[in-house]
Computed example of a mutant assay.
Amino acid sequence: MKTVLTIAGSDCSGGAGVQADLKTMAAHGVFGMSVIVSVVAENTARVIDIQDITPKMI
């Protein structure tokens, strides 16, 4: 099976970022791997905060 790596932020709604990338990869029959570089706190109305992951953690 082919593998694909995405380097992206995490979107807790699942509609964008690494979550959407992994869904797209699965739809194309490839094994998705990810590096998460930021996380978002949001609700249905707005983005509350964005936190980048430090390079040391990555």
Rank of each mutant, 00 (worst) to 15 (best):
V4M: 07
G14E: 06
V40R: 02
L5A: 10
E42M: 09
F31E: 02
I36V: 07
Q51K: 14
T6P: 11
G29F: 06
M25A: 02
Q19T: 03
M57R: 15
D21T: 09
Q19C: 00
A20L: 05
D52H: 15
T44E: 12
D11R: 12
A27W: 12
S34A: 15
P55A: 15
E42A: 01
A16C: 09
K2E: 04
V18T: 11
Q19P: 00
L5W: 13
I53C: 14
A8P: 05
N43M: 11
S10H: 07
S10M: 08
D49P: 00
A20E: 04
E42K: 15
K2Q: 07
G17H: 04
V18N: 05
I7L: 10
S13F: 00
E42D: 05
T6Y: 14
A45E: 05
T6N: 12
R46L: 01
G9I: 00
M1K: 08
T54P: 01
D11A: 02
A27N: 04
I7M: 09
I58T: 15
R46T: 02
V30T: 11
F31K: 09
M57V: 15
A27F: 07
S38F: 00
G9C: 00
K56V: 11
V47D: 00
V37F: 02
G14S: 07
V35Q: 11
T6C: 11
G32Y: 11
A16V: 07
V18D: 02
K56F: 14
C12G: 03
D11C: 01
I48D: 09
V35Y: 13
I53G: 10
L5D: 11
V37L: 06
K2N: 05
Q19S: 03
M1P: 04
M33D: 10
G9T: 00
V40W: 03
N43K: 14
T3V: 01
Q19L: 05
K23F: 03
Q51A: 12
M1A: 02
M1C: 01
I58N: 14
T54K: 10
G15L: 04
S34C: 12
C12E: 07
G32K: 14
F31Y: 11
G32Q: 13
V18P: 05
V37P: 03
A27K: 08
V40L: 05
A20C: 01
K2I: 00
M1V: 01
K56N: 14
M25H: 05
A8V: 02
I58S: 13
T24M: 12
T3M: 06
G29I: 03
I53W: 15
A8S: 09
A41G: 06
S34K: 15
I36K: 01
G14F: 06
R46V: 03
A26N: 08
T54S: 10
G9E: 02
Q19I: 03
I36R: 00
